[in-house]
Simulated scan of single mutants.
Amino acid sequence: MPRVPFHYIDLRTFCYATEDEKRVEDALRHFLAEEFEIDRVTNTGHHGDRIVVLSARVESADGMRVVLDRLAELDAIDRVLEELDDRVDDNCSFFLRLDKQAAFNGLVRLGEGITLRAKVEAYPAKHEKAVANAREAIELAGGDADE
């Protein structure tokens, strides 16, 4: 993939008191380069339970390629492409929700648990241009384009 048309990609998940933090981190790491640092913020839930927010902002082109390569493994990638107009907002942000349990098991599925938000490069910053750029990036990641 010659160019990555994103300014950054944010990944975020929550680790609830009933979950093993290492396993939740492993699920998030499934989408990241090996050495990538994950931010942790500990919060308290409504009932006093501990909730750890794990997040990562990927800003390098190589790091974003790793995320996109993982997304290319998504069996519902055609569905994502069909829904792209709804998945990109007017601020040129692309959104996906991914299955945390599947990610822990080394799979990529749409579902609950991990939120992905990518700021799409679009000049001019218009919804239609952002959708086109996101489509191109996803299609290239899914193909064997080695330019």
Rank of each mutant, 00 (worst) to 15 (best):
F104P: 01
V24W: 02
L54E: 00
R87P: 00
S93Y: 14
E147H: 09
A137N: 11
D86L: 13
R87A: 04
D39A: 14
L68I: 07
R29K: 15
H7M: 04
R97P: 03
E128V: 12
G63H: 05
Y16H: 12
I38G: 04
P124L: 14
N91Q: 14
L98F: 08
D20P: 11
I77L: 15
R50N: 00
V67L: 03
F104Y: 15
D39R: 11
C92S: 12
D90N: 08
E73N: 06
V67D: 03
H47N: 11
V66I: 06
L68Y: 00
A61H: 10
I138N: 00
F95Y: 15
R117P: 08
E136N: 09
K126M: 15
D90E: 15
K119R: 13
F6C: 04
Y8M: 02
V120G: 02
A145F: 11
A61E: 11
T13D: 00
Y16F: 15
R109Y: 05
V80I: 11
F14C: 03
N105K: 14
Y123H: 09
S55W: 03
F31N: 01
V53K: 10
I9H: 08
R12G: 03
T115D: 12
E73V: 06
G142P: 02
L81Y: 00
I51M: 07
A137K: 08
E82L: 11
R79C: 09
P2W: 05
L54W: 01
D99F: 03
H127R: 14
D26I: 01
D49R: 06
D90P: 01
A141G: 07
I138S: 01
D90Y: 08
F95G: 05
A122M: 13
A102L: 11
R29S: 07
M64I: 06
G45S: 14
A134F: 15
D146S: 06
F94W: 14
V80F: 02
